[in-house]
């Protein structure tokens, strides 16, 4: 996919980086002049995807999470969140609302449901033992520009 603009990030899968990741993606996308709601949607979806990497992909170990954001055109953004962790055996099941493998940690099992509800497309590629790539597509509504 060609991009008008692109950025890449790589960081440790520490929970303290969850806020950094969503804020950094939000800052990059700000150039498209999204509404507060659109920006909040993107930050929420990115937070869910990054949390999945921290909690599930790497568990008790620390690995690398990489994010690649592409501005496809003036109102479409693609955000790819990739880890090289344990992978997901059954992606379809993992995406079912309320399905969680960590109920003790009070995970609500809503991560993918939130991503799906707050973006315009979620694609998941995963290989057990190799890692998972989540691609989020979000459309930013065109706004009348007076200035």
């Amino acid at each position: 996919m060609k991009a008008l603009n692109e950025m890449k990030l790589s960081f440790d899968s520490r929970s303290s980086n969850e806020a950094f990741a969503r804020t950094a993606v939000g800052s990059f996308i700000a150039q498209l002049d999204p509404t507060v709601a659109e920006l909040s949607d993107i930050k929420t979806a990115v937070s869910e995807a990054v949390t999945n990497c921290v909690v599930h992909a790497y568990g008790d170990s620390i690995g690398k999470i990489s994010i690649n954001v592409k501005i496809i055109d003036s109102n479409t953004v693609s955000i790819r969140i990739r880890d090289t962790g344990v992978g997901i055996e059954n992606v379809k099941q993992a995406m079912e609302p309320l399905y969680t493998t960590s109920p003790d940690d009070e995970r609500a099992g809503l991560g993918f449901a939130v991503m799906q509800s707050f973006t315009d497309g979620v694609r998941v590629n995963s290989k057990v033992g190799k890692g998972t790539t989540v691609t989020l597509l979000k459309r930013i509504a065109c706004r009348v520009n007076n200035g």
């Binding site: 609500a108 991560g111 449901a113 939130v114």
Partner: peptide, 9 residues
């Protein structure tokens, strides 16, 4: 800001 962790909470 709140993601689904707030729901779990």
């Amino acid at each position: 800001f709140m993601d689904s962790s707030g729901i779990g909470l």
